[in-house]
Design a protein around this nucleic acid. Structure first.
Lengths: 238, 238
DNA sequence: GCAATAGTGTCTTTAAGACACTATCAT
DNA sequence: ATGATAGTGTCTTAAAGACACTATTGC
């Protein structure tokens, strides 16, 4: 075996072959109380005709001066290209990088994966279904993991697992409701992400604590519903 | 702006320039109750003479048939090369990927970062300080973030933040104590990672719950200490 | 009026935090 | 015996869960 020093020398002088690097997006929103993910029908091989996560290759410059775009910027650019949404309106967060050899049969490709949480009102604006590229919202719960192209089913599962971890300890949930939202709306998000219904009374108590702690604040107006109108709240950036 | 379809076509036919991809390791252990990270004194430009995280380039094959090594395997290989430790004896987990343009002045380099948690008994075996490459354990608390090469100070901070998040909700802590450990030993891990002392009585209660829940089990023997010997426990893989 | 759901209140259990106290070792 | 620390017990508070109940709307 070569010693580490020899390895290091070889690397700086004559680098190994490089992998292609893609940035893939798990774009999620809530439609009628259920998590939906934005998928694209692939029009070319491999996995032609299969659904896949939107994404694209990282732009790398051609030298020391121009080294290309940041990963977060690449994710924002892809989001814009695929949905027309600006990254300021969406929670966009890197969560893992996937690189198993063979995951793309053509060549070695690493995928730096981001999840993007889109408010329901913005999700409506996404050109879905009408495009040539055939972009569409698919309900996460009804997806067969094996139906997605590449390892995208796995990537989706990892994204969901991470979101479940962070749901209670971050501001993540507030990115899946309108900017001004009701407590029941927020409860729907928790129910959908956790996959089990949340008790209305207990959930309300939890949200009320957030208000007392200054995380949320009451917002003017009410939301008209099928029954009793509900009070509005908003997230305090502070 | 080019349409997405045109972009996709260009990419598959003539891929953009590719970044170099490194796998860097935040190798941590506990020495005398304090978190220590394994660092290497760089012997070459850039950042010659500065301390850096150990790591190396991902091995990518040269075609469709040989696509090279998996990311996890690359991390395990680097760990073995730098410390002599086998990945089975260490908790090795990817936590983020860093790719800011300019982070390496020579060229565009992505770094897929892993943390590696090493039991104190194994840490002693690591050839530290005696090598030509000058590998050494540095106390995390005393490190000036700006003293590390590249963005490695930042990478270290992200690793620690992630560990703090997962400490209470994963088996992470059990990888920083001997396979058979005492409650005070485990408490030291929590104190070091959280950065604040843990109450002995309350902490013991928490561990006892883990025993009742079958996460831990009593182990034979006792640990002799400077005072009263302590009972041993072990993590139940199950 | 009635269905639906926003919103309130209560009781119980669990866990965290503060902290006093006892037990058992090495020296 | 004494210092150190393993280990126990108690009191308080915060939060989760189960669940009964009231209030206000659209229809």
């Amino acid at each position: 075996m070569r010693s580490p020093d020899v390895l290091r020398a070889r690397q700086s002088l004559a680098p190994y072959a490089r992998p292609a690097v893609a940035v893939d997006l798990v774009i999620l929103t809530l439609v009628e109380g259920a998590l939906h993910v934005l998928l694209i029908r692939r029009g070319e091989s491999p996995f032609e005709g299969r659904l896949a996560l939107p994404g694209g290759f990282l732009r790398v410059g051609d030298g020391q001066e121009d080294q290309g775009e940041d990963l977060d910027l690449a994710a924002a650019r892809e989001l814009q290209e695929e949905t027309g949404l600006a990254s300021e309106d969406v929670l966009l967060e890197q969560f893992a990088t996937f690189g198993r050899p063979g995951r793309d049969p053509r060549m070695r490709v690493l995928s730096v994966a981001y999840y993007a949480l889109v408010r329901p009102e913005l999700a409506l604006r996404v050109r879905a279904g009408g495009d040539a590229a055939e972009t569409r919202w698919e309900p996460v719960a009804e997806l067969d993991g094996h139906s997605l192209a590449f390892d995208h089913g796995h990537i989706l599962q990892v994204a969901l697992a991470r979101m479940r971890e962070k749901l209670d300890t971050s501001a993540l949930a507030f990115s899946l409701v309108p900017e001004r939202f009701t407590i029941p709306e927020l409860r729907t998000v928790f129910s959908a992400v956790k996959g089990e219904p949340q008790d209305p009374g207990n959930f309300r108590r939890k949200v009320k604590r957030l208000v007392e702690d200054g995380v949320l604040e009451p917002a003017p107006g009410v939301r008209r519903t099928a029954s009793k109108p509900a009070a509005l709240y908003r997230f305090r950036a502070s």
